[in-house]
Design a protein around this nucleic acid. Structure first.
Length: 420
DNA sequence: TCTGGGGTCCTAGGACCC
DNA sequence: TCTGGGGTCCTAGGACCC
């Protein structure tokens, strides 16, 4: 059997751990730049605030009901996530961390009572050790475990943990699950199904395999198998190296200045480079994109440029200077820009990188040593004033007006308890 | 007026190889 | 006038996830 542990309203729950004043109240955590709602407490959901809605559209609800709005605080959520995951890892034979707030795990026993109580025990330990409430779903496949976890969340009777361990239970759950709520079936695919009169997960699971093969791609076929209890979604090896690394932001204020954009792009490139070094890789290619105001889809004509680097590298200075070259090739004076980003691709492990014959190895080694020192400084004493390329400037890019402190990762932000 | 960010997988089509 | 067959690799775009 496969289990799924899913943290409830994760970002909001993290904020509540360190700020009990938020308990029992409507709370919204906003996306970067304080733009959209990305996590809501139950109380905020009840007021009709939905995930992804722009904050300015719900201003009136926020004002009228005194909703607490928080800027997102990823260092906090990331740290809380790894605490939750390490607790789960101690309690199960194997774990696959699927996202910041979810993990699949394996369970070898098959008895329903044991499964249910083990699920509850995992929830209890996580809550006690971290303060984060969770839900658990257990079933023969990942897709069914997802269904089970939704049920655990939705219906109080399960006590937070739901087990699907028979055909009858699966059928009951699938009949109550809308097609678009199935893992792997998004907006586009569910619209296609609905046009054919298929509205529940049960109707999808009941199709014949010929029908599925004729009408859908392999993803649809896998989903169908999983709903019928046959595992088809393979496990990922833990901590795979990334094949693509992106850093992008919307700006607090739009800008028409090449100088300003160059600083932002240099910052994004630097961040990409340090993420690259953290996974011990080099990249061969760098792309820069800029969004003019009014272009929400992005990537209008001439707003994207990709360059090949002289050799595989993770050197901040090389990557930043190529990023600025790429930016200059697409920048036009006139429009206001509201967003930019840098993506590095063609990533390979340092040991497997094939370097240029014409760049002296000594230079490569010197740069590598320099980056190691920079990373060391920044990870130990560079908290507030990190060492960086001068081209990155010193400007705050995004708006983040309601951010909590980095309680669990920064000593100067540690929580204080005052005696009355 | 104001609307996130960072990923993965799959597929079709082009380029290329022998 | 007539001109093969079988394959790999890469990339862009679509769809999806949290």
């Amino acid at each position: 059997m496969i289990g799924l542990v899913d943290c409830n309203n994760f970002y909001v729950s993290c904020e509540r751990v360190f700020n009990p004043r938020l308990l029992g109240r409507p709370v919204v955590v906003m996306s970067s730049n304080d733009g959209c709602a990305v996590a809501m407490s139950q109380e905020a959901k009840a007021l009709g605030i939905t995930r992804g809605v722009p904050i300015f559209q719900v201003k009136e609800i926020i004002r009228r009901h005194d909703v607490e709005v928080m800027s997102c605080n990823f260092p906090l959520y990331g740290d809380m996530s790894s605490r939750v995951m390490s607790i789960v890892a101690e309690m199960v034979p194997s774990i696959e961390v699927y996202s910041i707030d979810e993990a699949f795990f394996s369970l070898d026993d098959a008895d329903t009572d044991t499964l249910h109580s083990r699920g509850k025990e995992i929830m209890r330990r996580i809550l006690k050790s971290t303060g984060i409430p969770t839900s658990v779903g257990i079933a023969p496949t990942k897709t069914l475990a997802k269904v089970a976890a939704r049920f655990a969340k939705r219906y109080k009777g399960y006590g937070g943990a739901c087990v699907i361990d028979s055909a009858e239970k699966a059928e009951k759950a699938l009949r109550l699950t809308a097609i678009g709520d199935v893992w792997g079936i998004g907006r586009r695919t569910s619209a296609r199904f609905e046009a054919d009169g298929i509205t529940t997960a049960y109707e999808l699971a009941s199709m014949t395999s010929e029908e599925i093969k004729r009408r859908f791609n392999v993803i649809g076929q896998r989903t169908w198998m999983e709903l019928n209890g046959q595992p088809a979604v393979v496990s990922e090896p833990i901590s795979r190296t990334k094949e693509q690394i992106t850093t992008s932001r919307s700006f607090a204020r739009t800008t028409a200045s090449l100088q300003q954009l160059s600083e932002y792009v240099a910052q994004f490139a630097s961040l990409c480079a340090s993420k690259l070094r953290a996974q011990h890789s080099n990249a061969m290619s760098i792309a820069v994109f800029i969004y003019p105001r009014g272009d929400n889809r992005g990537l209008g004509h001439g707003s994207f440029a990709e360059l090949t680097l002289p050799e595989p590298t993770s050197d901040t200075m090389t990557i930043a200077s190529y990023a600025i070259l790429a930016l200059r090739s697409i920048f036009r004076s006139g429009p206001d820009y509201k967003k930019a980003g840098v993506t590095i691709t063609r990533i390979a492990d340092v040991e497997q990188s094939q370097y240029s014959l014409f760049i002296p190895e000594a230079e490569r080694i010197r740069r590598g040593n320099l980056m190691t020192v920079v990373d060391d400084i920044n990870s130990t004493i560079g908290e507030k004033t990190p060492v960086k390329v001068a081209a990155a400037g010193n400007n705050q890019i995004v708006k983040s007006e309601h951010r909590s402190r980095r309680f669990s990762t920064r000593l100067s932000d540690i929580i204080e308890i005052k005696a009355e």
